[in-house]
Amino acid sequence: MNIQFKKGVLEICVLVLATSGDRYGYELAVKISEKFEVAVGSVYPLLNRLTQEGYFSTYLKESPEGPPRKYYQLTPEGWRHMRALLAQWTDFTRAVNEIIEEGLKP
């Protein structure tokens, strides 16, 4: 996929994935890389930034296998941010799709 498309989209994906329950970093990284090609290593800096900006809070939780995992939980501010981004994204894609459909009409 075009690199330009991935800019910013990753942020929406991470935030939306965290709405259905707290996630740990690896889970998010794998979920996203299954769908489209990203450098998985970029997901962690993004998570750090979103935490730093107050959109995520983190906690460590023991896991049955291996060391404790760091979970990311959406804060109320994170929810607001996610909804705002999603609204922008929906408007944007709708507009692009309309242009494409009209453009491809015979």
Binding site: A39, V40, S42, Y44, P45
Partner: peptide, 17 residues
Amino acid sequence: LELGDPRTVAAELLLSY
């Protein structure tokens, strides 16, 4: 390989910091 170049990762981590 999947994680990507450590230099890129380090640069991204450093930037927001």
